[in-house]
Each structure stands twice: as structure tokens, then as C-alpha cells.
Design a protein around this nucleic acid. Sequence first.
DNA 1: AATATTTGGTAAACTATATTTACTATATGG
DNA 2: CCATATAGTAAATATAGTTTACCAAATATT
Lengths: 148, 148
Amino acid sequence: MTQELTQLRDMHLGRVLLKLERQFTQQVLSQLVEQGITEITLRHFVVIPFVTDVGIRSVEIAKKAGVSKQAVGKLIEELEGYGYLEVRPDPHDGRASLVFLSDKGEHFLQTAIESTKILEKRWQQLIGAERFNNMKQALIDLLVCLEA
Amino acid sequence: MTQELTQLRDMHLGRVLLKLERQFTQQVLSQLVEQGITEITLRHFVVIPFVTDVGIRSVEIAKKAGVSKQAVGKLIEELEGYGYLEVRPDPHDGRASLVFLSDKGEHFLQTAIESTKILEKRWQQLIGAERFNNMKQALIDLLVCLEA
DNA sequence: AATATTTGGTAAACTATATTTACTATATGG
DNA sequence: CCATATAGTAAATATAGTTTACCAAATATT
């Protein structure tokens, strides 16, 4: 009885999503390590996706990411220390700074995106391109519905 | 340019999986809270899926879950304190104990499984049953390939 | 049988990472 | 101008895990 339940729980959608996400993330991260990028960990992706060409304030990132501004401050500090980000004072607001990607940061981003593409191609082959693409689109549509 | 890249990264498979998994987990957890189950958090699911009718040792759980036995010990202690688990000495090994689900634990499990089923039904309706089912099966097949 | 080694489990110290509370400095709206 | 809000930092605290060290029981070795 419990055995059966365990099986059921083990295969519910949440579990499957969790396991696949872990696999994906782990594989991307290890590809980055192979490329010599070792400083950046998962935590830093709380910040990185929000950095744009025009610069962004740390409070903005905190708000969008849903974490405290102190946590964001720490992550930015680290990424700046590694040379991936540049932090410059906001010319229009003496209290604020703006965060930008450095050249190294841009390059990293390119590499990271390359990695995800390679990985998706690899996964595509495992279950067939058509099934994979349908699956991905269904996931995206579902997410859009949920976030609406 | 960066804007475009951000968009791309934002929609890669890993991100989609992550967001959907969070939504799923959060919705299940809040359903459980609505049912009055407030003590159990996500961490406890490191332990719960491994508990079976015949009992299991904490080291076994640690091995299977890939965390330290100390961490597992703590989680078991908590769950025992809340009344979801029972820990009895192993009659065949004086060093060991065996972990079981209590009646309360079994009931919780039923409730949790119910919640996931309800949630899946709800999600099914968002993108259509057939698409949803195909999607889920593709995810499972993919996972099986990856874990093989 | 006596001893050595392995194994199940616990305890304490340390590590990582986040939040809360409190503060400073600058902006901005009456 | 002053009151209030906002950007950012700092320190204390919380959470949750790992590492190191240990004890006691079991198993293996000689």
C-alpha cells in the first residue's frame, strides 16, 4: 500500500519537473565549469537575468526577484569582484547605483546561452525532436496561463 | 542586444521547468496548509518518500537522498515530534532504528497525493487534457532516458 | 575467543546563505 | 524647509546544511 503510494507520489508532475530541472541546471553548470567558468553558481542567477543594457538598480532586482535587497547586494558584490558586473553611480540619483554587465559578463552570458542550446539539442534527440518541441511549447503555454 | 539575450535565457527549458516546479510545489503546499497541515515543509520531503511499510533506516534514507545522515536525523526527529513518523529500534540490529509512517503520517500522505491529483486536473484544463497528458508522458520518458 | 574493522547513529562546530532590524544619505512633495 | 520616502549598507539573527569527531553495536580476522 505505502509502496504504491510512494510510487504515485514519486511520479507526480511536481517530482518530474523537479528532477528534470535539477538535471538541466547541473548539466549546464558543469558545461560552464568545463569552459573554465567556476566562480558563478546558481545563486548568482537571481541577479544576472535582470541586468540590462541600460543598467538596473539593486532594489529593482530585489523587487523583481522577490528577495531582500541585502541578499542582492551581496550577490552583486560578488559578481563585481569576479569581474562580471560593473556598478556605477546613477547620474540622476545620488543615492543609487546602476548595475551593468561587463565585457566578461556579456561573454559569460553568451556562453551560458550556448550551453543551454546545446543541452536542449541533446535532450531533443532523446525523445525525438517533434515530441520534445511539443512538450516544450506545452510547458511554456502552461506557464503563461499560470502567470496570467 | 542584452534584452534579446535575457529573453532567450528566460525562456530556455531549465527556466520553464524551474518556474513550473515552483508553482506546483507552492500550490500543493498551500493546499495542505488549507487542510490544516502547517508543520510539514518542503525539506521534509527529503525523508517522506523513502519511508515504507517495512521500515527504513535513517542511513538508508541519507544514502538514497544524497544528504548527510545528520541532516536526515534532524528531519526524522522533527517529523516524529509532529507525530507523522514512528521510530522503533531494529530488532535485528542493536545499533539501528527503523522509521515508519504513523497513522497520522499515512493520512498526511493520502492528503498530499490527493492534492497533487487535484492540481494536475486543474492544470490539465489549462492547456487541454490531451496536450497535458502528452506533455507529462514526454517529461517522464525524458527523465527515464536521462536516469538510465 | 580476542581483537580489529565496519557500520548505525548522535553531537558539536563550522559554513553558507538568507532575512530582519537598524541606520545613513539622498530625494522629493507638500 | 521640513516631513517622508527611497537607495543602499551593516550587524544580528535564523535556517539548514556539511564536516569532524565520537560512541556503541555488529561483523570480520586472526
